[in-house]
Design a protein around this nucleic acid. Structure first.
Lengths: 204, 204, 204, 204
DNA sequence: GATGAATGAGGCTTCATTCAT
DNA sequence: AATGAATGAAGCCTCATTCAT
């Protein structure tokens, strides 16, 4: 019922294109994401990735043109669901019910790709200079346009923005405080929904 | 009547210690902070700092033993008010009124040292490996112990945590959205106080 | 009635040897020569050649054992007429008339293979270390032995040598100065013939 | 009476600027020029230069920002006399006598910096992509404007151009043919002067 | 007749750091 | 209080080449 191909489900997005006999490309992505999330982008060298995979650095370059392309490919593969979600949200009426649904699904999407989002959050300065910086910003603006009502009170706007990065950062922080991930998730989601709900009432 | 030394007032914290005849140490800190905040820690090289100051890299080493020491010194100088605030908070009863006061003063402190906090936020992966990582974490735990009631409902705990990083991130985000900094600050503060207030009521 | 194979006629020299069904070998040579002439030998990578042809690098290795072999094959194919010319010249009496005829035909041969000669001229340092370096040198010595009279006055010897590289370099330079190629060719040829003529009279 | 500082005279041009206690910068230039002339630019690695000098590669980067800057510095230092010569030539009437004088002095200048010019000649493809490519081209155009009369017969124009690269290439070629350098120089110079003289009479 | 995948060597460059002066 | 000169380690990347399929 889950992860039907034994690869944590993330191959679903791009179809069969890259299912070469060897699966090195995929393995590079997996190891890279793990190391990027753990140590940061700049402190993870291609040498290190290659060593973990027991291939040479040059092999990485067979699969990716640059170091940046590795992270870009991860971002593209893993944030497809979010892109879809935003597209969906744009076409809905921006009611409270829609917003709550968006928040719920967004929370799911973040959880599914949590190493990537941990990475994005902890490497903002780096990410800003990479191609994914702009991509990420655009997605965030997309979310904002759905969640935040530009005519609302400034305080209510902050509530909505706060809901978003409560989702982004909340889970990691609570986890670091020793709370069970599943519990943390539920509590964070509740607070986020609460925030947008209050925002709606305030402006309504 | 203000900023008696022409350096935006930030020398106030550490007293006369470093007020040597030359002010190079200070200038190094200023330039370093600017560049760290703008580009990140790893992407800012000592060469770059030295060039901006029109001194040699070796001069930096006269004033600081390592690159890390520069950021440590900035952290220590600029977060003294927060340390004091936590010390104060610890000695107060953990009432809602105290918490609100803490939030208010914390907001002031963040604003006063906003480039540093922008830096901390955007370079978390890097900061984690530096000495300031632990320092910062300890401060955050100190704040948490004052603001968050461990016996409270998990959701209310999240509310408090969320209040804290709403303060941390909120101002930067709102500013990036084109809101006037002073307005942003007020709105962010209001949301944060709201969150701890709700938390208190929930658990009360 | 001309260029019976649609490839500007240069296949004429080596006969049927390489007329396999596919024409990849030929296409590799054409693209390689173009790029070598344009960018130089070292700055042209096999990747680049392969990409232009929309084949893989490995395909190049099916047709040529090494990168060097590509340039060697070009040299051999394209300088066959010059080799023949030298063989012919050797068997003639070294009269002024013969020399003039050699110069004329040499000019034709250079024109026919001008990208190769442009390449040879602009990559002398590289060529020296390749197999074609020695081949080329031998050809030049062959020409010299026909054109230059070793008993002649040193100045006259220089005249003859100068005639040769006036031919080699002259056309490219004049073309770069915006002169019509056909005109340039004529003028260059006249100066070269003049030089050997003067040399003959001087030593006679 | 010559080379008053034991460094073959080439320090004369840039004055005392770089006469540091250590003379590493100068030694880098010397070794680099030797290797560039011998093996070509691309085939000479910074590792090789550093090893010959028994310093690390990083030391090279203390003195020169890039590999290209090494060759640029050599070009600038060593072709100063030619630049001066062109400036002088521009201010003279373009009579035959002036042209002959230019040719003579140019020959001297080439001889003085012959390794550099050997390098330029044998690495044209490379040089074209470096900053010195344009510099060199500009100098050549400067010479051309003095030596070549644009109203003259095309053949006479070729004579003048031919005179120039007879000077450039002649010496190296004759030397390779086993002729005494001093004799070669004289003969080459005579042919070059002859060519411009003929050109003048033709158009006069 | 060609590809996909990989390698080993080596390229240029940058960095934090040191130390004698 | 600072400089000039240098180092060692490491970074990203590219190349010609190989080989099983």
């Amino acid at each position: 019922m889950e992860a039907r191909d034994g690869t944590d489900g993330r191959r679903g997005a791009d179809g069969a294109k890259q299912r070469r006999r060897g699966n090195t490309r995929q393995r590079i992505q997996d190891v890279a994401l793990e190391l990027f999330a753990e140590q940061g982008y700049e402190k993870t060298s291609l040498r290190e990735i290659a060593e973990r995979l027991d291939v040479t650095k040059a092999a990485l370059y067979y699969h990716f043109k640059t170091k940046e392309e590795i992270i870009v490919s991860l971002f593209e593969d893993l944030t497809k669901p979010i892109e879809d979600l935003i597209d969906w949200g744009r076409r809905q009426p921006h009611t409270l019910e829609t917003k709550k649904e968006i928040i719920r699904r967004y929370s799911d999407a973040l959880t599914a790709a949590s190493p990537l989002f941990r990475f994005m959050q902890e490497n903002q300065a780096t990410v800003r200079d990479l191609r994914i910086g702009q991509m990420f910003k655009n997605r965030m603006l997309g979310m904002r346009d759905i969640i935040v009502d530009p005519d609302a009170d400034l305080v209510d706007q902050v509530r909505c923005v706060s809901a978003l990065f409560t989702l982004h950062a909340g889970m990691f922080v609570m986890r670091d405080m020793g709370v069970d991930p599943e519990d943390a998730r539920g509590a964070v989601l509740e607070v986020a929904i609460d925030l947008v709900t209050q925002a709606q009432h305030g402006s309504g």
